[in-house]
């Protein structure tokens, strides 16, 4: 069994969280609130040392670059709702960030996603092995039928209906795969904690 205080703290906090599996209790609530507290404190410190000081305040205060006043003042406007008379000023940082972010959404979704993904869907149907041909056809029909399923401007009847149904099947396989992977992810996290308890704390393995 470990003799390190840090390992013991971590182990007891781990067990406090797991006590929730029996039922909600004060140990769990204490651990939960410690988590929120240390996480928020961590964010503030890291943001200051990794970004706010070297990229905003240091150039302004130590080197006198007044241009940095702009992002600082606009950023401080986030606190405007605290003064009701000027609360509308919060819209300035919101619209500024939305403007820049949405512009990049338009550019990059087209350049980085729609074009390359379209290109990857135009797959060869000749000069490939029979198995590859089936796979390529399935990808092409799968993409088209999934798109058809989300096309709501016309009733899903006739050929459109068949395609929409095909789209559902493709999506069901994809959702099933996602479920399988989700199970895998959750179990991995549990294994990680049990490994910590058995290896680092109890030193059984």
């Amino acid at each position: 069994m470990s003799t390190e205080i840090g390992v013991w703290i971590a182990a007891l906090l781990t067990l406090a969280i797991y006590s929730f599996l029996y039922k909600d209790n004060p140990f769990y609530k204490v651990a939960e609130n410690i988590f929120v507290g240390v996480s928020a404190g961590y964010w503030a410190v890291i943001l200051w040392f990794n970004y706010a000081w070297p990229n905003l305040f240091e150039p302004l205060i130590m080197r006198g670059s007044v241009i940095y006043l702009i992002p600082i003042i606009v950023g401080l406007m986030m606190f405007a709702p605290l003064i009701p008379r000027v609360s509308w000023l919060i819209r300035i940082p919101l619209t500024f960030t939305m403007g820049v972010a949405m512009a990049l959404v338009i550019l990059q979704r087209i350049q980085g996603e729609i074009f390359p993904q379209l290109q990857a869907t135009f797959l060869p149907l000749s000069g490939v092995s029979p198995m590859q041909l089936i796979s390529n056809l399935l990808i092409i029909f799968g993409v088209l039928s999934t798109l058809v399923y989300f096309y709501f401007s016309k009733a899903h009847r006739g050929v459109l209906g068949v395609f929409a149904k095909l789209g559902i099947w493709f999506m069901m396989v994809a959702f099933g795969a996602s479920f399988g992977y989700t199970v895998m992810a959750r179990i991995s996290l549990l294994i990680g904690r049990v490994y910590f308890l058995l290896h680092n704390w109890l030193q059984l393995i």
């Binding site: 980085g112 390359p116 993904q117 990857a120 795969a177 992977y181 989700t182 992810a185 991995s188």
Partner: peptide, 17 residues
Amino acid sequence: TTAIMAPQQYPYLSSGQ
């Protein structure tokens, strides 16, 4: 990636991104 995110990466693998 986390396993939850892994299935979403396959379109990018197939496009070579």
